[in-house]
């Protein structure tokens, strides 16, 4: 039972991170029907910016508590800025192009950003300081849920609730939903669609940066390649839940996290990634619109 709970919580931690990244995919897909292939790279850049800022602040002798806050803020700002620029350069000129074009452009951007970070930083793994402070109020659960697991789960939950409120109640959130439903119609009722799309990229990227900094300080090391696998898995999560649906992305992330955690715990750890991909293939074959997604109606 103890082992089961341990796997359960490690799956929950993983799943929360996948969900955070998956939200970016799902929001972008919901609005412009594009798989933002470079989203994983934004997450990686968020983690790197966090590392650099934390390193600078440590060298100036800042206290630990302020470092985590400032590094996270910097990571979020930078990830958002990169997301915004990415959309402007690689996707906006292609908005009316055939569907394959922006997808290929996204793959190109993903390769570019990976190599950009590799060449300007390093191709080795960099150790990431553990920014999350240790605390001991969890009592007997501590052996199963570390303090960083706890922080990840809580932060992810708070962020997701906040996002849901934002989408439901704010002006921009409503504009986003309208644009997702019908872009032309939204334009006709006076919504600045360009602005909405930019905002989507900014929010999605910021969420990815939160995930990036949390997981980096949980695992303790990063390199330029972490975005690729995390990106594909988060996309799997988004598809699992039904791409375009925000609660779906959260649910999908958790299911994927648990699947991986239990399969590696009870079956074999060599095939960790295979389980994720196999799950993706199976879901797409049997339920192409995902768990909470709606099947698209094809109109002629």
């Amino acid at each position: 039972m103890e082992y089961f709970l341990e796997l359960f919580f490690s799956g929950l931690t993983r799943g929360s991170i996948y969900a955070l990244i998956a939200l970016g995919y799902t929001m972008v897909y919901g609005i412009i029907e594009l798989i933002n292939f470079a989203h994983g790279e934004i997450y990686m850049i968020g983690a790197f910016v966090g590392l650099v800022v934390a390193g600078i602040l440590t060298s100036f002798g800042f206290p630990a508590a302020s470092i985590i806050v400032l590094a996270s803020i910097a990571a979020i700002i930078y990830a958002a800025a990169y997301g915004y620029t990415l959309e402007k350069i690689a996707y906006r000129p292609l908005r009316d192009a055939p569907r394959l074009s922006p997808l290929i452009s996204a793959i190109g951007m993903s390769i570019f950003l990976q190599n950009y970070v590799m060449l300007s930083q390093t191709s080795d793994f960099l150790s990431f300081p553990n920014l999350i402070p240790e605390f001991h109020f969890l009592g007997k659960f501590e052996s199963m849920v570390g303090s960083s697991d706890f922080v990840i789960i809580v932060v992810a939950a708070v962020v997701m609730v906040a996002l849901n409120l934002f989408i439901k109640f704010t002006r921009m959130g409503k504009a986003m939903r309208a644009t997702a439903q019908n872009r032309k119609m939204a334009m006709l009722v006076g919504i600045n669609v360009d602005q909405v799309i930019s905002a989507t990229f900014v929010i999605g990227s910021a969420l990815a940066a939160v995930g990036g900094i949390l997981i980096a300080s949980h695992i303790g090391q990063i390199n330029f390649f972490i975005g690729f696998i995390a990106g594909i898995k988060a996309f799997t999560a988004a598809v699992l839940g039904g791409i375009g649906s925000i609660p779906g992305a959260m649910l999908g992330g958790l299911i994927l996290g648990w699947t991986e955690s239990f399969c590696t715990g009870y079956v074999s750890s060599d095939y960790e990634d295979v389980f994720a991909f196999a799950l993706l293939v199976l879901i797409l074959i049997f339920r192409p619109s995902g768990l909470l997604g709606k099947a698209p109606i094809q109109k002629v």
Binding site: I35, Y271, V274, I285
Partner: peptide, 26 residues
């Protein structure tokens, strides 16, 4: 997988490529 629309197909084939490589590796 060919029932899937374009961009889903892209991801599934990518996943399949990775599965083959991981199996060869493990």
């Amino acid at each position: 997988v060919l029932r899937l629309r374009g961009d889903y197909l892209a991801i599934v084939t990518l996943g399949f490529g990775e599965i083959i490589r991981l199996v060869l590796e493990n």
